[in-house]
Design a protein around this nucleic acid. Sequence first.
DNA 1: GGTTAGCACTCTCAACCGGTGAGTGCTAAA
DNA 2: TTTAGCACTCACCGGTTGAGAGTGCTAACC
Lengths: 340, 340
Amino acid sequence: MEIRKRKVLEAVVNDYVVTAEPVGSRSIARRYNLGVSPATIRNEMADLEDLGYLEQPHLSAGRVPSDKGYRYYVDNLVRPAVAGGEEYRGFMRNVLETQGHDMAGLLQHVARTLSEFVDYLVLISGPEMGSSAYRLVRFIPVYDGRVILFLVTEGGFVQTFALDIGDIVQQDMDKVKEAFYTSFYGMTLEDICNELYDTPPKGLEEYRAPLISSLNALVERLNDGQKQRVFFCGTANILKQPEFRDADKAFALFNALERHSLAYEMLQALCRDEEVDVAIGDEINRQGIQDCSLVVSAYRFGNDLMGRIGVLGPRRMDYARVMPLVREVSRTMTDVLNGL
Amino acid sequence: MEIRKRKVLEAVVNDYVVTAEPVGSRSIARRYNLGVSPATIRNEMADLEDLGYLEQPHLSAGRVPSDKGYRYYVDNLVRPAVAGGEEYRGFMRNVLETQGHDMAGLLQHVARTLSEFVDYLVLISGPEMGSSAYRLVRFIPVYDGRVILFLVTEGGFVQTFALDIGDIVQQDMDKVKEAFYTSFYGMTLEDICNELYDTPPKGLEEYRAPLISSLNALVERLNDGQKQRVFFCGTANILKQPEFRDADKAFALFNALERHSLAYEMLQALCRDEEVDVAIGDEINRQGIQDCSLVVSAYRFGNDLMGRIGVLGPRRMDYARVMPLVREVSRTMTDVLNGL
DNA sequence: GGTTAGCACTCTCAACCGGTGAGTGCTAAA
DNA sequence: TTTAGCACTCACCGGTTGAGAGTGCTAACC
């Protein structure tokens, strides 16, 4: 694309991001020093519309970026705003350090903090329990037939699941206590299922079937993303955005987001790039969320991907600010989790 | 209050609940068989307004119930709608039974199910961890200095907390493992703190201070309600209500609700009655939630109050439907949790 | 040939205006 | 005490109008 067209496209996106109003040739000529008259810009805009980068809500209105226009902007034009990054980094470190590695609380806090820096919705998915390796696995019998599966991931995330292994007589409970003191270090849930299937703990052969089926059901749920918790913060922010002041639009969006599994899948679906990824409008491909964009970055522990941090806002999102911010937060998360 | 005034007040509330429009004397005369003309009803309404039970949005509009009017209605006039109760009970039992006592999942499901029966927001607070007695307390050392406190309440609710007890040398970790195998059966968190303070486990005297301070911080957080999780469902429902189609109103409400601790306190604050309680408008006494009503009922395990189920909607809530429904759900919860 | 000034045209939006309908308060009669 | 009648108020709807912003097109300009 010619240099001037790029400048015009960038100007349109920049202006539209802040005003949420269709932007016209005159205002671009006034606010940006392109050295040409509105008429020339008008011609460029007409060309950009032909090429599919801009759209016109109605004749005699200004132009609005199309999905394709945003895509081009994000891929080629966006100039990350550095301001706030450092400030935020300090803030984050503070949050991370005072939260003492209580993962759920930590993620909640990070979501809250981030949502105060952007006027959008923040989503953070927790560690993927289904396929990650555990540093500690413990089976804790609680009472008749109920066993709590206690897991700690490499990253220190604790999760518990209740398993029902049917009627157990009291004296067998002690056996359970003993039997499950085996080490499952570094195994995934699938591994544990297989292990138990192949070599059931001594004295507990008769409970193997219900235990296995209970575990299998658990693995299945985890893979469905049903058990996966997504932390939300800044829901109210959505209502600040002019495009969601219409109650029906807002309703459709909130309704969709209420299915946490959908939010989880949405976060998972983005993984083109290592650092920070963006899905624009229809690219999100979820009912009710067509009018949004999602900026996502993953945080890691060691080589394992732990979870994802996402910011969901209108397509007209402030990419220049959000992208570096999200990148920064996930980097900081990764750093702190890895004990740097 | 005279019988006819009561009938008129009831009629106004009933109509306003469904239409959300100020209701006039004529429409009451038409829809209810009071045996008097609109003019008479008009006079009664003027009286009710003088008494503070009704309000007029503007001259020449119909009347709307005031907070006082709703209060009188809820206390004296409401006729619980029975329809749906049994149907719901079956539904609930099914949810409760298939959820296998995984408390977090269970509460989430109950919230979801209930939110499908009412067009309002459902809030459920989990067991109060701070002051309830535990059936099982376990300290699980994870790695250097990090100990997970693993708690199971009488009701089978599992919760874990990370504690930092400072630098621990590896060989001491085994001691921790041993030392914390004590039984803390039936103790509350406060009890445990005291116990550890009075008689620190053998060989771990030097870790007493950080452990105690870590635990104290935990108790404090629990008492602040910070750690208390509140399960939300039906947030989108709020936007269906005409009074929240105005984005600013909705924003104020969502903003307030985002502070989960506020939601928690709101639920806790209501405890006049055993069965089901209602806070109307300003009675809720929380910034941003003045225009709502809250219907709450507690569920129990044994004699302990475990948590609360609340429905938050506009003041113009369908009390006749919501009140029995909330009562029914909390009863069913209590029944199922107690193993009936 | 690219650029620009000028101009007619389009479309939205806010303000205005009058009519309609719902509802009220008041008064006088039943 | 109740009711019919009536004048009055106010929100709301639909149509109109004018202003403002923006466009496309054309012809002149460098």
